[in-house]
Design a protein around this nucleic acid. Structure first.
Lengths: 204, 204
DNA sequence: GATAAAAATCGACACCGTGTAGAGTTGGCG
DNA sequence: CGCCAACTCTACACGGTGTCGATTTTTATC
């Protein structure tokens, strides 16, 4: 496995391989949308990227590695976006902003996010990636809950545990809604927002 | 594909095939626990059931059909249990009872339920089965919410939509917790119950 | 308990997808 | 020019799936 180890620092000119790698990932994403993970073969990806199977295996060690890289690329984007979001002190605003951002995320990357969730069990690498992403969300939700007056702590009725449950609610609800339509996604978002507000004691 | 069509009505003596079929399903469940869906081969199942691959294909047309049958068997059990549960009028009691039952379900059948969820996307048959099961839960939750005073309807802050979100919250939370420990399952259940209560406006 | 139909079993085979090996090509740089 | 690394390809071995036809066992019926 030569091609790996993305020592892609300190290089101005883009290697041919970098282009190929991106093409592979893009094709993989497209095929994922068309046929789904199982039906998509390595040959399909290679063909879509304009190379042979053999060449693909120069870049990635396996089909799983390809999709792991795709998930990593997307998840990285999520993290950036998360960091870049302005933090509000007022819980109501914070919740509204978070839900707005989440809708955007799922609109843009719903497919890859769903794939990541589906493969979390099978591919440990992806599971790790996704669990880290979830933790980010859970931490953020916890902070909002605490600011709204929910006691901190891990016990069932305290902020951390509630945040975890709310995170899974949002994940699953968006997972399903994003398969249907943008309109459903919007509605689902409203519902989640409402439950989050109520859970934070901001019912008025 | 001769062996199918379970015209198993009106028959006293149990066919040999019925025993085999059960053995196959049992083995499948055991292997699912040991190695997971992907790693489990048709050969493994056959061997575990004491027959050859060829014989197994007499009973089931594919690996997917085997696990679909397993899911169907389990889900049927869930439905029975659902029907058998006494209905309470008092929302608080109803919620507590429902969560207690859900913990039992996941303790007993967590593995197959997780498998069903994982394969819902890939295997349409299983997706259908699980979606019907979820609908059962959603309907039940909706009823409780309405009895607690939440307005009926499909809009984001009305009972039906909230029930759907709460169902996904419970599903996902239990999905994760049931992989860890019974203790976690219990705690997760408490958290979900609390959020359900608050969402129903039963916060006092 | 003989018999014929149905049920069940088996071994061999064809197919397809994965991943590996090794040989060959290209391009930049001393 | 000649080297080295990046890149690409064809060919192959392996393993799992699902199919087929021949064969044996079970079951129902007389």
């Amino acid at each position: 496995m030569p091609g790996h180890h993305p020592t892609r620092s300190r290089r101005t000119t883009e290697r041919k391989g970098d282009v190929r790698e991106r093409a592979i990932l893009d094709t993989c994403e497209a095929l994922l949308a068309q046929k789904g993970y199982d039906a998509m073969t390595v040959g399909d990806i290679a063909q879509g990227a304009g190379i042979t199977r053999g060449a693909l295996y120069f870049y990635f060690g396996s089909k799983q590695e390809v999709v792991t890289a795709l998930v990593a690329r997307t998840v990285e984007h999520l993290w950036e976006r998360s960091r870049a979001t302005a933090q509000t002190d007022e819980p109501r605003q914070a919740i509204a902003a978070a839900m707005r951002r989440t809708v955007e995320l799922w609109n843009e990357h719903g497919l890859v996010m769903r794939t990541a969730i589906d493969l979390s069990l099978t591919v440990p690498e992806i599971g790790e990636l996704w669990s880290r992403t979830a933790d980010l969300f859970i931490t953020a939700i916890t902070a909002v809950l605490e600011r709204a007056g929910i006691p901190a702590g891990d016990e069932p009725e305290q902020a951390s545990a509630m945040a975890r449950a709310l995170c899974w609610m949002i994940e699953r609800t968006f997972y399903h809604a994003s398969q249907e339509s943008r309109e459903n996604l919007r509605k689902a978002s409203s519902t989640c927002e409402h439950i989050w507000l109520v859970s934070a004691g901001l019912t008025a």
